[in-house]
């Protein structure tokens, strides 16, 4: 569904992504692995259309990244990004205003499950709560491709379980999920494909089970070997 070739992003004085070529397939859950600063975020932002590549191409369903791809792709950044004047409720309204695939009922349900209040002001939420809000808003979209940047960061264990459940509920034969993380062990059982990124390059990628069999190692062990 998505094909990237020789992606490169150079900022003024540093190279964020050196060379990433990979294909994402429908119906899979990918772990995008790598330590902080390895280029995971920049890669996701290029797919979501927030960052323009310096070099290389991205094709989503045969089209370049643009208005159409943004309709289908739901990106969730690590940091909170909602307007500070918003409430939990108006975040939902905003999503409803702009994303055709946004499911209001699902949002209400998720907000309840995450124990958030519709009337809460966005800028008064604790970091854990705003992380939950981000997940709720993003996962309430029935997107074709979800890009979740460190969805478990700064979240307690109970909430992590809820988030993983939410992600698994969104998984289906025609949706693809990419989860970037440096907490591999939490997600080892959830994912079926992996992409290891090191210094802005995709070093290993493919089916998780196959990689485990070929290398005789779990993904966690492989992670330690690659970045240790």
């Amino acid at each position: 569904m998505l094909e990237c070739s020789n992606l490169k992003k150079v900022y003024l004085n540093k190279t964020a992504v050196e060379d990433i070529s990979l294909t994402l397939e429908k119906g899979r859950i990918y772990a995008l692995l790598g330590p902080n600063g390895s280029g995971k975020t920049t890669f996701m932002k290029m797919i979501s259309g927030l960052v323009k590549p310096t070099h290389g191409t991205i094709e989503y369903e045969g089209m370049p990244i643009g208005v159409q791809s943004k309709k289908d792709i739901a990106y969730m950044s690590t940091e909170p990004f909602f307007y500070s004047f918003m409430t939990v409720e108006s975040v939902g309204k905003y999503y409803k205003d702009f994303f055709e695939d946004f499911d209001e009922d699902k949002y209400v349900k998720l907000i309840g499950e995450m124990e958030l209040n519709m009337k809460d002001k966005v800028n008064k939420l604790s970091s854990g709560m705003s992380a939950k809000l981000k997940i709720a808003a993003t996962m309430a979209r029935n997107a074709k491709l979800y890009l979740l940047d460190e969805p478990l960061n700064g979240i307690d264990i109970i909430a992590r379980e809820k988030i993983i459940t939410t992600i698994l509920n969104a998984a289906s034969d025609d949706s693809t999920i990419v989860i970037s993380t440096h907490l591999v062990d939490e997600l080892e059982a959830v994912i079926d494909s992996v992409v290891f990124i090191k210094d802005g390059k995709s070093v290993i990628y493919g089916d998780a089970e196959q990689i485990r069999e070929q290398r005789g190692k779990s993904i966690v062990e492989l992670y330690k070997e690659i970045y240790g």
Partner: peptide, 9 residues
């Protein structure tokens, strides 16, 4: 906040 605006299709 820019994500809000530029993720909009």
């Amino acid at each position: 906040q820019s994500y809000m605006l530029f993720l909009v299709p």
